[in-house]
Design a protein around this nucleic acid. Structure first.
Length: 571
RNA sequence: CGGGGUGUAGCGCAGCGGCUAGCGCGCAUGGUUUGGGACCAUGAAGUCGGUGGUUCGAAUCCACUCACCCCGACCA
């Protein structure tokens, strides 16, 4: 490709709305352009990188036994009503009306469609297993798109759905996909970690996410360097350190004027926060729930939502709290009636806690679980903490941030039952197909790759997903011999299948070098009067500082073998 | 959905009652340059987000509205 013909130009200044690196560089390098909130066009350069990723994913899906197919974005609401997942998608679902007033949805995912498809095509255990996938755009009206390509409303996703006759089959399909995913990230030149995950709106049983670890990531993970335990913070557990276990003392009131937060109260009474009980209120499907947890822990809302089995949950507003008669800031589970109380199991770890008195400016000392208050549920709803012991091996756990670039689920049979995807097994029994689903967001993976691979000058593409492999950069190309040598090398490289971006623009060296760094093509070749004096060209990797000179003689072949060596060596 | 913010040339911004709306980058033409975002000259490019109002006069003040951004809620 000749740079002079390439659509899109680089920008010196980042768009003012770019808050993360990948967004800024993608726009500055002329790879994407925003069309609307969370809606982007890909320009040729960005699309080439995208297609590299897409091809790697397709190859791995095929290698794992997947069959590619295509399903519509336009989906009838009836299928969503049938599957019962409408409430969990709710406003996230884009809907529209056809000319007859019939409501349709723009598919946020395709489990409903594929299950319906399988219902018509799979009748016998002989038709199973099936691994079916698609690489298509999906639509979700996100409450808040952000970060350029990291969280958008229209996005490309590879989704594979597995259909098996029994649990052993599901385990096997799941295992194949986990391996395929590891292959994909590694072939893209990226290092991803697999973590245990909450299954969220998709529903189902076991679930894992694949994370690219970057500081700017919006997900937090807990991991154990000693045994390898790793989980999304939404799912993670850690061992809660026991508090002081003393003989129970009599409850007494203590005046705490104006002190509302745990830190203020603990500071005032000169005790540590693990000697206190914290009260938090949520509204779950319209019902107020009182949550009590030891003061040094935070509530993990995902866990809470799961134990309450509710579809909509939010922190109670001031007004909602007051309606229940609770005194905000001084709330207490003691003597509370008519409200569901959920206690974290940390309230059992310790004694003689300080808790609210349900009375303005007052707390209670020496509060003990069971003696002074009870709970409707006593469960683990605490956020796991770095530093606390790992649940597997008891060594201290650590925390990292990451970007979710893949998610796999064991769905089980709830969708096949709802949508009627049944088969006859060997014994003639009528059974629901057992499902799994496995998704990768392509645009997000592209952006995450940049978050993980860049410097202050620009992108540093891993070779396998770079839009071009080589940036050919003649300098002083009004000198006839430079132009001639560059043209020749460009033709030779192209002829043997090397992907070259040929910077044939009449620009100064500084402009070309800076664009080369910004766009981030892995290998840069410079031809100038200086190199021609030695009958050579300068070769430099984007990720490295130093360059070397190689003879022009047979250079195209030399470059090709350097590239294939590098591709083989990539992680 | 709550709070905050921004809409002026392709991009980044200034102008915030006074008449022909500016700057930098980019773009076009010509010339001089050429190993890390060169320089000179000339030039093209704007319904000042939209609607309505106040005023002799509105990019500027007011109201409404739309779009976009940030924080939170929420969310693969």
């Amino acid at each position: 490709m000749r740079f002079s013909r390439l659509l899109g130009r680089s920008l010196k200044e980042a768009p003012s709305d770019a808050e993360c690196i990948s967004h800024s560089y993608l726009v500055r390098a002329g790879m994407i352009q925003q069309v609307s909130t969370g809606v982007y066009s890909y320009l040729p350069l960005g699309w080439r990188a995208f297609r590299k990723i897409e091809n790697i994913i397709r190859e791995e899906m095929d290698a794992a036994g997947g069959q590619e197919l295509m399903m519509p974005s336009l989906q009838p609401m009836e299928l969503w009503e049938k599957s019962g997942r409408l409430p969990s998608f709710d406003k996230t679902l884009f809907t529209l009306k056809d000319r007859k007033g019939h409501v349709m949805a723009l598919g946020p995912t395709h489990e409903e469609i594929i299950t319906d498809l399988v219902r018509h095509t799979v009748q016998s255990y002989r038709d199973l297993p099936q691994l079916l996938y698609q690489i298509q755009n999906k639509f979700r009206d996100e409450p808040r798109p952000r970060g350029g390509l990291l969280r958008v409303r229209e996005f490309f996703m590879k989704d594979l759905y597995s259909f098996d006759a029994d649990d052993a089959g599901l385990d096997e399909s799941y295992g194949k996909m986990v391996q395929a995913y590891k292959n994909i990230y590694s072939r893209c030149g990226l290092s991803a970690v697999m973590v245990e995950a909450d299954s969220g709106a998709i529903g189902g049983k076991a679930s894992h996410e694949f994370m690219l670890l970057v500081e700017s990531g919006e997900d937090e993970i807990i991991f154990c360097p000693a045994c390898g335990y790793a989980a999304n913070i939404e799912k993670a557990t850690s061992i809660k350190p026991a508090g002081k276990n003393e003989a129970m003392l009599a409850v007494e009131e203590v005046a705490t004027p104006g002190l509302r937060s745990i830190d203020e109260v603990a500071g005032f009474l000169n005790i540590t926060t693990d000697r206190t009980l914290k009260s938090v209120f949520y509204v779950c499907d319209g019902q107020v729930v009182f949550v009590v947890i030891r003061g040094d822990f935070e509530v993990n809302e995902t866990k809470l939502k799961n134990v309450l089995k509710c579809t909509e949950m939010h922190m109670a507003t001031e007004a909602e709290v007051q309606q229940t008669g609770i005194v905000a800031g001084y709330a207490s589970p003691i003597g509370l009636e008519g409200i569901k109380i959920v206690a974290d199991d940390s309230v059992k770890l310790g004694s003689n806690f300080v808790a609210g008195a349900n009375k303005q400016d007052t707390h209670l000392k020496n509060v003990n679980f069971l003696r002074d208050f009870k709970a409707d549920m006593i469960v683990d709803i605490a956020k796991a903490r770095a530093g606390d012991p790992c649940p597997r091996c008891q060594k201290p756990a650590k925390t990292e941030r990451g970007i979710e670039v893949g998610h796999v689920f064991k769905l089980g049979t709830f969708l096949s039952e709802k949508l009627g995807a049944y088969f006859l097994d060997r014994e003639g029994n009528y059974k629901p197909v057992i499902m799994g689903c496995y998704g990768i967001g392509l645009g997000r993976l592209l952006a995450a790759a940049i978050e993980q691979n860049h410097d202050e000058k620009g992108i540093i593409w891993p070779l396998p997903i770079a839009p071009f492999q080589v940036y050919l950069c003649p300098i002083k190309d009004d000198a006839a011999d430079v132009a001639r040598a560059a043209e020749k090398l460009y033709n030779n490289l192209t002829a043997i299948g090397v992907e070259v971006l040929f910077d044939d623009r009449p620009e100064s060296p500084g402009v070309k070098f800076n664009d080369a760094d910004l766009i981030g093509i892995p290998l840069r070749i410079v031809i100038s009067p200086r190199t021609l004096r030695e009958n050579a060209a300068e070769i430099k990797w984007r990720k490295e500082k130093d360059s070397q000179h190689l003879p022009l003689e047979g250079l195209a072949e030399t470059i090709k073998s350097i590239l294939s060596k590098a591709l083989d060596a990539s992680p």
